[in-house]
Simulated assay, not measured.
Amino acid sequence: MDWLVDTLSAEFGHMPGPGTLVVILRIAGAAFLCGIIGLEREITDHSAGLRTNMLVGIASATFAVIAMGLIAEVHGDEVRIDPLRLIEAVTSGVAFLAAGLIVLARGQVRGLTTGASVWLSAAVGLAVGVGQWILALLAAAAGVLVLSAVAKFECRLGLAKKSHDNKGDA
């Protein structure tokens, strides 16, 4: 019976990289920050709202933590590390998701801002996943500011093609 406990402990109790508490904080932090971005989309009744942005942020943070864990497990010259590959992989994956949100309807492009918000959530999730909390906080705050305050400013100046009232993706 001890061999079973030892085996299960080795399999499920091992957290390479930053450690279990840090991983929990990073995943929760990504969910929270990206949830704020998604909340604006949800409040203004756009697609890809709260849950979508949270899931994109969680996934991006998870990929970052996985990469950091793999790097921590490999010692010496056994692996060449290129952090840009992580960024490229997440960006490519999210690009497909964001592209699916962008549609051409009645001669107008719709969903572009929502697609961009999902892309931003991926970047915020990556930043949190690698422990760049200040960058993640600044990016999330800037994103929410652009999505809410700049959109209102555009409407006041008459620059927005569609107002939030008729559900355009301004």
Rank of each mutant, 00 (worst) to 15 (best):
G93K: 02
L147P: 00
G158Q: 04
V56K: 00
F96C: 09
L159Q: 04
T91K: 05
I36W: 09
G158N: 06
S47F: 02
I27G: 14
F96G: 12
V144P: 02
G19T: 07
E154Y: 07
A127I: 02
E73W: 03
V130L: 06
A122P: 03
A149G: 05
A127K: 07
D45S: 05
V124S: 03
V79M: 13
A142E: 09
S9G: 15
F96Y: 11
L147N: 05
P83E: 00
L8R: 01
C34L: 08
A140E: 10
W119Q: 00
I87V: 15
L145E: 01
A160H: 03
G69E: 10
K161S: 11
T113E: 15
K162T: 09
D82A: 03
A123P: 09
V146Q: 03
V118Q: 04
V56H: 04
D77T: 13
I66Q: 04
V103N: 02
I36C: 12
S47R: 13
F32W: 13
L97Q: 06
A64L: 10
A61P: 08
E88V: 01
G17R: 08
G168R: 10
D165V: 00
A170E: 10
R41L: 08
L126A: 03
L135A: 14
G13T: 11
L104D: 04
G17S: 12
T7F: 13
